[in-house]
Design a protein around this nucleic acid. Structure first.
Length: 568
RNA sequence: GAGCCAGUAGCUCAGCUGGAUAGAGCAACGGACUUCUAAUCCGUAGGUCGGGGGUUCGAAUCCCUUCUGGCUCGCCA
């Protein structure tokens, strides 16, 4: 639809001297009702500059669009309503999708640009829970969106692999665990002894001192401590990788907190050089009063680095290593102030690229109105959620299609898809109150609905004796589009590129999720009302239309990280 | 106390760079499987867009104010 808008805007610019074609393009909108046309130009704003009534302007423009993309125009109470030429839609939109196939929706607009994306960042030695899922799937979808516009993407998993918890873990391991137990049970055993440590420390606070000592040894690169830390990390990563495999998510770098904790000295030096660092209660801070923010803490009173200084060090490292054009951080909105603070500090340090640091926030996940908290047991582990969802899907498969091949894998693809989709279907800023009932609902606007529709389209194409490859576009005639269901579907398909642009502009994956629902609704309506393989004169057209649906859904599913289910 | 974010149908939400009669899904009710996958489709019902002002030809959308909820505010990340 983008090129259609462009053509219309350029043509209209010839009749409207006061506005450039891009301004006209921005004013073009989609009318609420089909009888109002396919595109519309409201003429109210023009009224002032042209010193004519909106009605008169619309009237005067009615005959100006004598171009191939436009069928006809109507002037209706101040709007210029434009009806798209259906022949053009068939010969261009349909043709483009069918020809681009797997490339549908992709462009090289930003080829040569690099974006770093910091997302997921789980804590080592702790299991993934539903609160960690959002950063992971939102970040991944935003990465795909950039890839679809030609960006080189660097996915960075800033692991939480450093901190006093490792001192605790070492103490706990030495007291209550064994090499054998950890190797056999993995993260589960690490969690068990970590929880036990907290229980015991309640009774015996000296355990905390011991833990601090061990962490200090770790920071001093003590051999024993380092070896255990590396081992815990390795064990833990094995489980984390399993989750990423299920989600089909990969990273280009796992450089996390442990990588940066001792790289903050140059940051401190540079801040000192610029006289930005002041001492306050023994700590070193950057005053941000001038920018209406509380001070940013750079060095603790004991001389250790902090979150902010490590983030700054990491940003500088990434700029030097990847020379990014943008660096995106996907974390909860609760960290908003923190990011605004250290982005400002980077700017004050004189790095002009500070303006390319972007925080993408998302709402928090709660359950039953309460925060997720391991200690209170108010927690849902991702593994449990995935396996429960997969089990429910398997029940449905056994009921409807018991002979399906490879049904455990399919059930997992769809169960996990349901969870991921529901996380991506609302605007990311919204808080989520998790409920099992909602997460395991497979009706309506859900992942399974999209995957089912995709499988349905694939199934039709599979059963057709005419392959889409055997159909020549020259055999497709505009009169083959015989009803509004086909027309509406084709118009919706034509919006894919605009939706990707919009999702990328707003860094908002839900834009794609909702669009996929639109495509599915239009296709299912069409499918239910008209026979595709049983069609007479326009069978070829309907097969190509179905193929186009398949390509758009396939790439849409890919962007939001759902498996493409050819059969369900 | 200050700052940021949110408030739209019973529930979950879309629409927010101002545009035509505010849209979906879930739940409820009534229909459609001898027919390409009924995890689908069609229909019915459901609204003082938190309240109040203002700007405008036009406000769910922008501004002010107020209420409610969430998050954040120096040595966690």
């Amino acid at each position: 639809m983008k090129d259609i808008k462009t053509k219309i805007a350029k043509k209209l610019a010839g009749s409207i001297e006061q506005l450039s074609w891009t301004e006209i393009m921005d004013n073009l909108e989609y009318p609420p009702e089909p009888h109002m046309g396919d595109l519309a130009l409201p003429c109210f704003k023009l009224s002032r500059v042209m010193r004519k009534s909106p009605m008169a302007i619309a009237d005067s423009l009615v005959d100006s669009l004598d171009i191939d993309v436009v069928e006809r125009c109507e002037s209706k109470s101040g709007y210029l309503n434009i009806f798209i030429n259906r022949e053009y839609l068939v010969n261009n939109v349909l043709k483009t999708i069918v020809e681009k196939k797997e490339e549908t929706g992709k462009s090289n607009e930003y080829a040569g640009k690099t974006v770093c994306l910091d997302y997921s960042a789980p804590n080592i030695a702790k299991p993934f829970h539903i609160g960690h899922l959002r950063s992971t799937v939102i970040g991944h979808a935003i990465r795909r969106l950039h890839e679809f516009r030609g960006y080189k993407c660097v996915g960075i998993n800033h692991l939480g692999d450093w901190g006093t918890q490792f001192g605790k873990l070492i103490v706990a391991y030495k007291k209550w665990s064994s090499k054998k137990a950890v190797e056999e049970k993995g993260t589960e055993e690490l969690v068990r002894i970590y929880v036990k440590f907290h229980e015991e420390a309640e009774k015996d606070p000296s355990l905390n001192d011991l833990a601090r000592q061990w962490f200090a040894r770790l920071e001093n690169k003590d051999e024993d401590a380092m070896e255990l830390w590396k081992w815990f990390k390795k064990i833990s990563l094995i489980d984390i990788e399993k989750t990423y495999k299920v989600l089909d998510i990969t990273f280009d770098s796992y450089a996390g907190e442990s990588f940066y904790y001792d790289k903050t000295q140059p940051v401190v030096e540079r801040l000192k050089e610029r006289n930005l660092l002041i001492e306050s209660d023994g700590a070193m801070i950057v005053n941000l009063e001038e920018y209406n923010m509380p001070p940013c803490l750079i060095v603790k009173s004991d001389g250790a680095s902090l979150y902010a200084s490590r983030d700054i060090a990491a940003a500088i490292y990434r700029k030097e290593t990847y020379d990014f054009d943008k660096c995106i951080y996907v974390t909860a909105t609760a960290q908003d102030l923190h990011f605004r603070q250290w982005f400002k500090v980077v700017e004050l340090m004189g790095y002009e690229w500070a303006k390319n640091l972007i925080h993408v926030g998302f709402g928090m996940v709660s359950m039953g109105g309460a925060k997720l908290a391991t200690r209170e047991g108010n927690i849902v582990y991702l593994d449990d959620l995935f396996s429960e969802a997969s089990k429910r899907v398997l029940d449905i498969i056994n009921e409807k299609n018991p002979d399906m091949e490879d049904k455990e894998q399919k059930a997992q693809d769809i169960g996990v898809g349901a969870v991921v989709f529901s996380d991506l279907s609302n605007n990311r800023i919204k808080d989520i109150d998790f409920s099992w009932e909602e997460a395991l609902n497979f009706d309506g606007s859900t992942g399974p609905y999209v995957q089912y529709t995709y499988a349905r389209a694939c199934s039709v194409l599979r059963k057709s004796e005419l392959s889409e490859k055997d159909i020549n576009m020259k055999d497709i005639k505009p009169e083959h589009m015989t009803n509004d269901d086909e027309f509406t579907l084709l118009k919706t398909l034509s919006l894919f590129n605009e939706k990707i642009d919009q999702a990328l502009r707003d860094l908002e994956p839900s834009c794609i999720s909702r669009y996929l629902i639109d495509v599915c609704m239009d296709f299912n309506k069409f499918y239910n009302a008209h026979s595709i393989l049983g069609a007479e004169d326009n069978k070829k057209f309907r097969i190509l239309l179905t193929a186009a649906v398949k390509y758009v859904l396939a790439n849409g599913l890919f962007i939001i990280g759902l498996k493409r289910t050819e059969r369900v």
